[in-house]
Write a protein that binds this DNA or RNA. Structure first.
Length: 558
RNA sequence: GCGCCUGUAGCUCAGGGGAUAGAGCAUCGGACUUCUAAUCCGAGUGCCGCAGGUUCGAUUCCUGCCAGGCGCGCCA
């Protein structure tokens, strides 16, 4: 249990006893006592913890909230850890506690290190997180970059709260787009020896296809001797493999590594589509109409039924995707989370239907939809056009602003919000740039610890110092923020809201910079100096932990 | 037409059934013989899109409307 949770439980039982005593004395008559809410107020004036119990129970007590609060407070037992109790506003009971629990936070951080903030909340559940899954026919875009940042940090959050997590990138290397890509590549190859060779109307125009063709010619100079069909098959396999390797490298450079790159073609090769069709047929969810085979997804709330096998005998995209999700479930995952772009939201209904048709609960599949990203330069939206070749790829973005800024900016917004990405701000090396602001806090602490070493001051453990010397407002505020980390991590994971963490990091950095301006460390008398060194070390550990979870570097100096 | 997302300070965005709605930027004014001034301190700013409803209490929940973005294929 976390320090905050422990403190909350302790207070809760004191309140519960007070209510019981008040009831016994006849001053309070409640039909039932609800769960006692205790929040950590934003305003320090409102104490360490505040309860709205009097507001909630006022109705059943048939008394005004403030009067209920007065009665409860009157029956609170004397406790050493409670310094002051106030009734405020419409009837809140505010508790001011002694600082001991805050000092204890520092001891816990020291013991747990980078494990601090972790929990066992998700134990027993296996989550499969699928994200990015960009087609292996071209470079990744900025929405892919957003998905990569959000997915990767969610995976780190899930692991932190005890889930078993697998991350996967689904490679659509068997569909129409892969065929178009193969024809494009083949045409570029032909053009190397015959510049007039026609390029397909629907082909991919990017230069990368021609560059790839040159590599291919080097590796396979005799390719044109193969019959057309074999040649295209080779281009498809080899070309998509090349693209996957590029995507892998780009993502690694971005701090994202997947547990598994799942190939659609492997599903086809293993007969998984036929298998899942057979399975759905047995269960009575398929029917034939208009020369095609349909999945009766409307039986599970989808808008319309979906074609599974087209009239020409080929499969649709959804067929392979159903087989893929079936495969995930057969591998023992209890929860599937997919992160998709905004253009796929209409796809949710059919996939959720498919999951149910396969015999799983509706909420087994959860789909997170990201919204679009607009890039701003000089305050103007950067216009992108694939056709005109004006297109900023994920790699362009990372080259321009760096991995840390890119990830932090994407994670700094709630995932379902449209995002304006300010390219000028992202490269700015000042406090205006939030990622620098946070990293600087970490580097500043590293610098203090380095200088302490140079001065011959050894870094103390919490057991060697008098933490009670930490009394300054800025020190108390820092300690409270450190104590809040475990609940922040849990909430960010449970609500799938990684932006809570960037916010937390910014707040912590801000509190540290303020502390730094108000409190000196190395020049102080040894007792105070050591207590502050302990504090600063705790802050550094937590900053490192949060930055790691965001996938952002924690520099020792800047 | 139906569906999803968004609408909060000049700008970019948090928040969320309750206490005086927050942060950064921008604007203005201060602080460096002192551990990194890549920092800190102080000041002003709000029909929380509009209209109803539920509630002791709504910016938050519900309904309708308005505005912006996106989606509704035997494409992926």
């Amino acid at each position: 249990m976390t320090v905050v949770a422990q403190q909350r439980e302790q207070l809760r039982s004191v309140i519960r006893e007070a209510i019981a005593a008040a009831q016994a004395s006849g001053e309070l008559t409640l039909n039932d006592v609800p769960e006692i809410g205790l929040e950590v107020p934003r305003e320090t004036d409102h104490g360490d913890f505040a309860s709205n119990i009097a507001l909630v129970t006022a109705k059943s007590a048939k008394k005004p909230p403030r009067e209920v609060a007065q009665i409860i407070v009157g029956h609170l037992s004397e406790e050493g850890f409670i310094e002051k109790v106030e009734i405020a506003g419409p009837g809140f009971i505010n508790f001011f506690l002694s600082n001991e629990w805050l000092y204890n936070t520092l001891r816990v951080i020291e013991t747990q290190g980078l494990q601090y903030g972790n929990s066992q909340y998700g134990q027993g559940e296996k989550i499969l997180l699928e994200f990015v899954s960009a087609n292996p026919v071209g470079p990744m875009n900025v929405v892919n970059a957003r998905a990569a940042a959000v997915g990767d940090t969610l995976a780190r959050l899930f692991r932190a709260v005890g889930y078993t997590v697998g991350t996967e990138f689904y490679v659509n290397d068997a569909g129409n787009q892969a065929d178009v890509f193969a024809r494009s590549l083949e045409a570029r190859y032909q053009q190397l020896s015959n510049p007039d060779y026609p390029f397909p109307d629907d082909g991919y125009p990017g230069d990368y296809v021609a560059e790839l063709a040159a590599v291919l010619q080097n590796e396979q100079p005799d390719l044109l001797e193969l019959p057309l069909e074999e040649r295209l098959a080779f281009c498809k396999r080899w070309g998509t493999d090349q693209m996957v390797e590029m995507q892998k490298a780009d993502l690694k450079n971005y701090g994202v590594e997947f547990d598994l790159w799942f190939r659609e073609r492997d599903l086809h090769a293993a007969g998984a589509l036929e298998d899942v069709i057979g399975y759905l047929r047995e269960r009575g969810y398929l029917f034939e109409a208009e020369d095609a085979l349909w999945f009766k997804s409307t039986a599970f709330g989808d808008d319309k039924d979906r074609v599974i096998v087209k009239s020409d005998g080929s499969y649709t995209y959804v067929t392979a995707d159903i087989a893929y999700h079936h495969d995930k479930l057969k591998r023992g995952y209890t929860k599937l989370i997919d992160i998709w772009g905004p253009d796929h939201h209409g796809y949710i209904g059919r996939m959720v239907a498919a999951i149910q048709a396969l015999g799983y609960a509706e909420d087994t599949l959860e789909v997170l939809i990201l919204q679009y990203v607009a890039l701003l330069r000089d305050g103007q939206q950067v216009k992108m056009s694939k056709r005109a070749g004006e297109f900023i790829t994920m790699q362009d973005l990372v080259d321009e602003v760096g991995k840390d800024a890119a990830r932090f900016f994407f994670l700094n917004r709630s995932p379902e919000s449209h995002l304006d990405f300010d390219l000028d701000l992202a490269v700015e090396q000042s406090s205006e740039n939030p990622v620098f602001y946070v990293q600087y806090a970490h580097a500043r602490i590293a610098s203090i610890l380095r200088q302490a070493g140079e001065m011959g001051v050894s870094i103390p453990t919490t057991g060697q110092v008098d933490l009670g010397l930490l009394q300054h407002d800025s020190e108390i505020a820092l300690l409270k923020q450190l104590a809040a980390l475990p609940e922040e991590i849990l909430m960010a994971a449970v609500q799938r809201e990684p932006h809570r963490l960037t916010r937390y990091a910014l707040d912590l950095a801000s509190l540290f910079h303020s502390f730094y301006a108000h409190c000196h460390i190395l020049g102080e008398r040894p007792e105070l100096r050591d207590a502050r060194l302990s504090l600063v070390q705790g802050v550094q550990t937590v900053l490192k932990k949060v930055l790691f979870t965001l996938g952002v570097d924690a520099p020792e100096q800047m």
